[in-house]
Amino acid sequence: MSVSPLQDSIASHETPGTKFFPPFEMTPELEAEIDERITHYPDSKRSATLPLLHIIQHKFGYLSAKSIEWVAKKLELEPIKVLEVVTFYPGFRQSAPGKFHIRVCRTLSCAMGGSGELMDRICELTGIDRSQSDSHHHPIAVSPCGRFSVEFAECLASCGTAPVCLVNDDFHEGVTAEKAEELLGKYKEEN
């Protein structure tokens, strides 16, 4: 297997969550989905960069060097043009999150509603250590078992039902710290 030349440029590392995601591998079904998506941009293939990265991240959990190179080749771009997109947007990850990635809203209305306390309670219940996290370079912290990970998100646009969070693609509102256990319970039994 060849080593990707991008490997040294990306902030990829093993996490306890890695085991829940399959390694990057292109299949005919996935490529068909990608080809269809590219047709949404008849005037410039490069516009498909974000959608392709979403499709891949959704399936493989994060964006490996190999997947970034694959997207670059597919869209006939230099790999740096894709890498600079991945490193800019908070929605793209270079390492695996937990199986269930929890994004807690940090911004004013949710903070007033107690989202800081909610985050603390989730970490307490899942054994997540956020002491090594920072908002810019290491926003995600993964639980030792790899089932859960947390990240503070900026305004999730539901200020009237604060505090709110996203668990993968599921949106939850009015989640005060007292309801953290109930929230996690919805995902604990699920395999």
Partner: peptide, 19 residues
Amino acid sequence: AGAYICGEETGLIESLEGK
């Protein structure tokens, strides 16, 4: 992909161009 600046119309356009 989670960036506030994409609400600014010219930033949004750059994002839609894949940048």
